[in-house]
Design a protein around this nucleic acid. Structure first.
Lengths: 246, 246
DNA sequence: CCAAAAGTGTTCCTCGTACACCCATGT
DNA sequence: ACATGGGTGTACGAGGAACACTTTTGG
């Protein structure tokens, strides 16, 4: 870090972009806003905004998260810096450097068309194939794909999955988090043992139980434990080579 | 992303900071520059600099890497975005948002006091205890610790370790990378099997061999293979609980 | 009675760990 | 001769994968 003349270089705008995931009806959803103005008017985009003069990217991201989701208690939600996107031409109007975040929300409430965004909605996310939202504005398709990959990877070796669950949940619901994010199926029996064998992953709520959508035996309820790392990791099963490329 | 008035917000300076590691004499070293001016005059700092108007953070980082190390071929070196540091008070003079990178260099040549940096040097890095360089300028101690943690973690599940090695290396040298970065010892026999069992991690150079510091049997030479991910991972041994806190 | 999901038990097999042992070289 | 590091072999044990089986609910 050498010269420090404040005017020697063109100023940059610094923004945050958020990839906010939730689980709804057994499917992974992503929070998107519809752009009201050019460029990319009418296209869907990740929610985000400028850094205020006195806040860090983390603060700005959490503020935007509260505004866009309409959630009152945003303090406990998982919010994680992904990486920074700084290609010179990523915004056609000016130099915008964007710090991207990934966030996880449990029971998604109604999306807020909050503030100045034209419209906000939770849309189902399918990796690879674009879902109901066509190509996103700017480089947000790349950011979204990176965010999904990061979340999927972190499930393997952290206790992050509970961030998708409400305060009280069953082991079947927790398992569904893995299955939906990874797009695979897991053996319920082995999953159960693995989770319970990890100290601090979940704590059983004594006596409580809940019926799971009518059918089946009532399941015991658990809440998230204090642990953050998951050792040994819970590995995503290798894609079966016999399936070929369908 | 809402209003776009170029002058509605205070402009930010955007810089890159580099944590460049190398192995020297069986010890992990970090490239530092000595600051010539206030603030933090006389203190060591990570090399870095401003983004030019037409380059991305990745381009700027690679440019700085070439300038500071004096290496001619910087294209093949491992350079990886770490995260972005944006606390409002991290630079006392103005708002500076810094995109941090971690880089790995094999056989470190002489450090360049290149350009405007007062002095540049490779200094031994010891996690935890500050080494020969006292507290770094700005928040660079935090960045450096984050970078070391990231590198150590990536060794577990990627083939990154070869980035520390010259084009031709022995398995003992590769093993030393892990031992030095992790601060542990590994079983040479099991390490050998693990590496050779991973397709594309290393390729043997037929017929070649090299004496290893005089003593011992000459070792076969290998070069880096094409693989990047290491499955199953090569786990860092858990710290032995019998050792206590010395 | 049947389907579906929770929860328990058991077997098989892979892989990591630890350690013994031989090989080739310098002092 | 001996120390040192490369390289091979092997036995033990933890842990994951697969699957059978029981339990409890709704239809």
């Amino acid at each position: 870090m050498h010269g420090y003349d404040k005017h020697a270089y063109e100023p940059f705008a610094v923004t945050v972009d958020l990839a906010v995931f939730t689980l709804r009806a057994g499917q992974l959803h992503i929070l998107l806003v519809e752009r009201g103005q050019d460029p990319y008017a009418g296209r869907w985009a990740l929610p985000g905004g400028f850094l205020a003069p006195d806040e860090s990217a983390e603060s700005a991201a959490r503020r935007e998260l509260a505004e866009e989701t309409g959630l009152s208690d945003v303090a406990g939600l998982h919010l994680e810096q992904l990486r920074t996107y700084s290609e010179p031409d990523r915004d056609p109007r000016m130099r915008v450097v964007s710090v991207a975040f990934a966030a996880l929300v449990p029971n998604a409430p109604q999306a807020q068309g909050g503030g100045d965004a034209a419209r906000a909605a939770w849309l189902p996310y399918e990796p690879g194939a674009r879902g109901a939202y066509g190509p996103l504005a700017f480089d947000h398709d790349v950011i979204l794909a990176d965010a999904h990959e990061r979340i999927g990877g972190k499930l393997e070796y952290t206790c992050l999955a509970t961030a998708f669950c409400p305060p009280e949940f069953t082991l079947g619901e927790l398992r569904q988090v893995y299955e939906v994010v990874w797009g695979t199926e897991l053996d319920p029996a082995n999953f159960r043992r693995k989770v319970l064998a990890t100290p601090g992953f979940v704590e059983q709520i004594p006596g409580a139980s809940r019926l799971t959508g009518g059918r089946g035996k009532p399941a015991a309820l658990y809440r998230a434990g204090g642990a953050t790392s998951l050792l040994p990791p819970l590995l995503k099963p290798a894609p079966d080579a016999t399936e070929g490329t369908r």
